[in-house]
């Protein structure tokens, strides 16, 4: 009994100090982490919508997208992030559209597809196929990398449809 008490006391004190240390580190790093995250998101948006001057986050019915505005505050389009299950990873892409729902640009943020095959989805050659397309238009997948490319195409179209509604 006495031994058990001693063991618990030792373990408790170690955990106690660990907790203090961790909360100290967390309180220092948390604001920085959030800041970098927001910055990354902003950079991604800028890349597909360089002319945007003001960005407004919109959240409705589980959808998150961004409204882009120019100097005088006119609505010049929307930016959203689409996520798709590819061949071997989750493909995250940022998409910009005009107010009429036409795709302006698509950029892949994150992917871990097969090098040389699935990674073709990050190349401009493929991404330019999205330009000017609408939600119901047909976009060709890459032959030989069908799984990765059609996953991206489908997810972009799906999210686009939802946002238009």
């Amino acid at each position: 009994m006495k031994e058990t008490l001693k063991y618990s006391a030792v373990l408790f004190s170690i955990c106690f100090f660990a907790a203090i240390l961790l909360s100290a580190v967390a309180s220092i790093t948390q604001p920085i982490i959030e800041e970098t995250k927001a910055e990354q998101e902003n950079n991604a948006i800028k890349e597909v919508m360089p002319q945007a001057r003001g960005i407004e986050k919109v959240e409705e019915e589980g959808l998150v997208y961004y409204k882009a505005k120019d100097f005088s505050g006119n609505n010049i389009g929307y930016v959203f992030i689409s996520e798709a299950k590819g061949y071997s990873s989750v493909i995250r892409a940022v998409v910009s559209i005009t107010p009429e729902g036409e795709i302006i640009a698509v950029k892949v943020l994150e992917q871990n597809e097969t090098p040389g095959i699935g990674t073709q989805i990050t190349e401009e050659k493929f991404l330019s196929r999205f330009k000017g397309k609408k939600a119901l238009d047909n976009i060709d997948s890459i032959s030989g990398a069908t799984v990765s490319s059609s996953a991206l195409i489908d997810s972009v179209k799906q999210t686009l449809k939802k946002i238009i509604q």
Partner: peptide
């Protein structure tokens, strides 16, 4: 955990 937090921040 400390390393993880520091890395995510910096």
């Amino acid at each position: 955990t400390i390393v993880e937090l520091l890395m995510a921040a910096f």
